[in-house]
Design a protein around this nucleic acid. Structure first.
Lengths: 246, 246
DNA sequence: CTTGTTAGGGTCAGAATGACTATAACTCAC
DNA sequence: GTGAGTTATAGTCATTCTGACCCTAACAAG
């Protein structure tokens, strides 16, 4: 039933199960002032792929849910709490690791820029521009590319962009997120019009002082905050995914 | 954090890994003529949940990819090949199974109605209306509900409905799929207009004879056929997911 | 007070959408 | 064979959404 393959060669043990996490944060380029997507990677300190950069991850603890394990990845590498955490995909190809059969359940997370600035680089943890994160260990190049694709999808459908920002933000900052994620320029006026009709965003009565131009109004996100779209199983907040697209 | 349960009893071994598959097929109600979504379930022949109905599934073979394992589930329970197969979600809650820690990577599949009619029920395999598939073993109720939600999402975004049908189909049949999945009536004229501007559907020069009304034209699906949106890893056809919304 | 720059309001044409009407082409009852 | 019933298919019309564009408001810097 398992085909003609000779099974005795490989370890016929159960495949190893690991949790990895793609952590996206926003950073502002000091020179251009544009927002960019960054992510932290950890250096491999053992074989295989020793010395290469890889997504933070590790085995699944016997007493933690998948999401808790991803959360722990996030804390361990960046000392941050996620503002957004969602399952990305389960990767289980036969040739992912040369040494053993490995199935990785990958999560992706968003953190706020103010938090990301706190998380300093260390010897074995470094932040990379998402576009420049290539040559990673295992199949992590593909995983990052897929996570970016999912991020673009979620942003265009319009639910997660807020989670990159603090609790008060200007529309220009929010537009910067969209432009960084989608990689294209957006018309400020049309962008404003669309977001005025959006559900989970509300204008405050404050403005941002201190800039050199007209002070922009500050807005607030009113939707589900640590939103993690996941079917019921998990112990933490279970909330049906806001479906359409994907 | 883990509640009042006595945890020391649990096996602290690595979690068991299983693959399950939600298989959707279309059936036409003989009386009303309307299309409905059905799925096959298998009866549990061992503890836990002995005697209850459950999603087809089983352990992951050491030498098969995740997708291959899901394909095998499909063949074993229905003797069918999938026209569409995609990963749904990885479920890993702590309390999914009373006897052991169990992580299930769930796939969902679409099969054609002509094929589904061939797959007869047996003692331990029975087809259920999707809406009536409740009271299942484990957390499979939630999994089915989530799969239906994903199905609705994919249909509205408009890529998978064809996979329910044969290689030639009328627009009325296709509309029946949409109506069965979305659970609402669609205007035939507007539906036609939208699909004429759709990419991967083309009119043939044939019409369907034998009905009692004006013979409808037959259409053909020209897009990616055994489409399985999955990031690069898998050994089989890797094709980027058509993003938005998932 | 002038200039440069961004915030924020508006207009206008084209595209997409939903509700609806009209005609075509077939079967069936009689 | 003729009319009734039913579905296929085309078209119309008002509303909404979208992208491109313009204009004024409000600030800082010189």
């Amino acid at each position: 039933m398992y085909g003609s393959a000779n099974v005795s060669e490989r370890q016929s043990q159960a495949p190893a199960l690991a949790i990895s996490t793609v952590i996206f944060a926003l950073r502002t380029d000091p020179s251009s002032g544009r927002s960019e997507i960054w992510l932290p990677l950890v250096r491999r300190i053992r074989q295989p792929h020793l010395g290469k950069w890889a997504l933070p991850g590790g085995p699944l603890g016997a007493r933690e849910s998948l999401q808790d394990a991803a959360s722990r990845n996030l804390r361990d590498t960046t000392a941050l709490d996620p503002t957004y955490l969602e399952q990305l995909y389960a990767f289980g190809g036969l040739d992912r690791s040369a040494t053993q059969r490995l199935v990785s359940i990958v999560y992706w997370a968003l953190v706020r820029p103010d938090q990301a600035d706190l998380a300093r680089d260390s010897e074995n943890v470094r932040w990379f521009r998402a576009a420049e994160a290539v040559g990673l260990a295992f199949d992590h190049d593909e995983i990052v590319a897929y996570a970016l694709e999912r991020l673009r999808g979620k942003v265009t459908y319009g639910s997660v962009a807020y989670h990159f920002l603090g609790d008060r933000f200007t529309l220009a900052q929010l537009r910067g997120v969209y432009e960084a994620v989608l990689g294209k320029h957006l018309d400020p006026a049309n962008f404003r019009r669309q977001l005025r009709s959006a559900q989970d965003i509300a204008a405050t009565d404050e403005v941002l002082q201190g800039g050199r131009n007209r002070p922009p109004r500050l807005y607030r996100y009113t939707g589900p905050h640590s939103g993690a779209p996941a079917p019921g199983t998990s112990t933490s907040g279970a909330e049906p995914p806001t479906a359409p697209a994907s």
